[in-house]
Structure formats: C-alpha cells, structure tokens
Computed example of a mutant assay.
Amino acid sequence: MPANAPPVAAAPVAAPSPAEGPATEADLAELDRLAASYRSLTEQIGRAIVGQTEAVEQTCVALLAGGHALLVGVPGLAKTLLVRTLAEALDLDFNRVQFTPDLMPADVSGGEVPNHSGGDGPSFRFEPGPIFTNVLLADEINRTPPKTQAALLEAMQERQVTAAGRRHPLPDPFFVLATQNPIESEGTYPLPEAQLDRFLLQIAIDYPSEEDEVEVVRRTTAGAPPRIEPVIGRDQLLAARAAVRKIAVSDSTLRYATRLARASRPGADVSGVNPGALEFVSEHVRWGAGPRAAQALILCAKARAALRGEVHAGGDDVAAVAPAALRHRILPNFHADAAGLTADDLVARLIAAVPRQPDAGPRWLREILP
C-alpha cells in the first residue's frame, strides 16, 4: 500500500454461503484429473514457449472459465505461437484470422452465397467463416475497422452467428484468443469498451528474462520446431470446465470480488473500503468496472484454484487474477494520464485498499478434510 494511504482495518471472518452444496466424489476426481492434465499441458507448451509462465496460466484460466482472452504485448513475444501451441496441445479445431484494414465482417463470420445446385429458382446457402472453430486466433485485432470488430460481438457473447435472419450456433467449446500490439497507433482502431468487456481477461505479455531469452535464441536457431502432442480432448475440456464451476467459494470471497469491482467506480458507495482509495478512484478513473468484472473475478479464481488441484477458491485467488480481469475494464481519465498512471496502477491501488477477508473455507470442505 502507498505510504500516504491510511491503514485499513481487518475485516471479520464471513460465514460460508449456506447455498454451497457438498462436492461429490466424482467432482473431486474430475478436479484431480484436471490438475494432472494441466501439468501435462504446460509440459507440452513448454516445448515451444520459453518462460511466460504467468501468461500461460492466465490463458488456461480463461479457457477453463469458458471465456475469451486478449493477449497484449510488443512484437516478437510469441503471442501467436502461444495460442497456436495451446490449440495443438488441446486437440481442438483451430483457425487463424489476420485482421487487416480491408477485412470485411463476412470474411470472419461467413455469409449467404448463391446455391448453384439447381432447382426452380435462385436460392442461397450459408457458407461458414473461419469463426466456426473451437479456438479462433484473432491476430492483431485492433488493425481492422469497428465494423469488422463488431462481427465478433455476437459470437463472443451468444456463441452464435446470425445471417439473413437465421441463427447458426458455433461449436462448443468456442474461444476467441486475440492479440494486440500496444505500441502502434497508426493504422489501428482501438477496441470499443463494449467489446473489451467481452474478454474475460486481458493478459499482458512482457519481455522474457535474460536466461529465458538466451534459451529462446538457442532453440530457434538450431533444429526443427518441436512437435506438440495433444493431451486434452474436447470432451475432457468440457468436463473440466463444468467441474471448475462446482468449486466452492465463501460469502467473504464473493463479497471481496464484488467490492473490488464496485470500488473501481467513481463515486461508488462501498462499505469496508479505504475512503482514501475511493477518493483516488474519483480523481483518476473515468469509468469503472461493471458487474461482469465480479463474475470474471470469481470464475477465474475458481479456475486458478482448480489448476493447482484445490477444491476451494479464496481471496488470494481473486487478488491473483484481478489485474488481468480488471485492467481492460477500468478507463483512466486525463488526470491519470497527466500523472502517468495506467490502469494497472489503479488496479494495484484497489487491491491494496480493499480488505481481503480471512476465509474459513466452505462448510462442506471443512467436513471432508481432516
């Protein structure tokens, strides 16, 4: 916490939610399989990707939570390679679309084309676009105009494409993993806030450490690219995604996630939060996070706990996923820009200001564990 911030009083332990039901043995067994599969998955990804452990984990968290992810980083940090490698290791259908200024919506979603199979009169049939896949890599998504960016909105939210008044469901699972270069502005079209909110996480890809960079150079300048073996199939992924939602959280964790989201809004009335932090938000934030933010925090906290083989998600899990879940949902104002403050700085201040309540764990967990 910053030195000039007033201390935050410790919050009392909240009781677990009475609505939480006991996890069955099948649920626990599925979570054990998920943790083992994740270790195999990271091993396969590690054949092609050096380091970037946090980015790999956050991408897997988004997939297990059933959401989309936006990977942001400068060129050459293996954003595209990470998505492609992940799709290969998951044994899922994969399509890549290079977003350019002249890309049209139908180039992504597909559209009606003339049917030349004969008949009494002219007819049309729907020709699916590359979006009809399990994993869609939207490469450099900010290089295409808003009209084409909007073609993804319905697909990301409703998992369907509407053409000529007819709805065409997308495959299940369906994930959009988009990449964006943060340092270029010429020839780019910033994503509107409504579309950013559709991304469960915005994952920051940073430069590797010196040792990792040496290893990257060594691997890429000698020998053929490694072969990636599929370790998780479609059915296993869907079962794991269902198991993640059964991970229990206490009321204190739910309230902590909700307060993080609410405290990001200027002028919000949030009990139990450092008043100085709320003044900081009112001074430096134009728009705060909406209700989707708290949902994202809890879902991603559950997925993070599952990857570690845990059956309970707590406040530490929420705090760990908060930067990726909130940085694209908080819009700094011109005061923040003048002070050199980024959305990440504001999220860090929120995490420091909102008290993380001690978590006794859900009732059913205390009953089955010694």
Rank of each mutant, 00 (worst) to 15 (best):
P2D: 15
P18S: 09
A19L: 14
P22S: 14
R33A: 14
S40K: 14
E43G: 14
A48C: 12
Q52Y: 04
T59M: 13
C60I: 14
A65D: 07
H68S: 05
L70Y: 00
V74K: 08
R84V: 09
D93L: 01
F94Q: 03
L103E: 00
S109A: 15
E112F: 15
V113T: 02
F124R: 03
L137Y: 00
I141T: 07
K147D: 07
A155M: 08
M156V: 15
Q157F: 09
Q160W: 01
Q160P: 10
T162P: 06
A164V: 09
R166G: 04
R167K: 14
R167D: 13
H168A: 10
V176E: 05
V176G: 02
A178R: 05
P182K: 09
F199Q: 04
L200T: 02
I205L: 14
D212E: 13
V217G: 04
T221R: 11
A222H: 12
I228E: 04
E229T: 13
R234V: 00
A248V: 12
T253K: 08
R255E: 15
R265M: 10
N274H: 07
W287F: 15
P291V: 07
A294M: 07
A296K: 06
L299V: 10
A301Q: 05
K302S: 10
A303D: 05
A305V: 06
G309V: 02
V321S: 06
A324H: 08
A324G: 04
A324Q: 07
A325F: 03
I330M: 00
I330Q: 00
L331R: 13
L331K: 12
H335P: 08
L346H: 02
I351C: 11
P358V: 09
D359V: 05
P362K: 00
P362N: 01
R363K: 14
R366H: 10
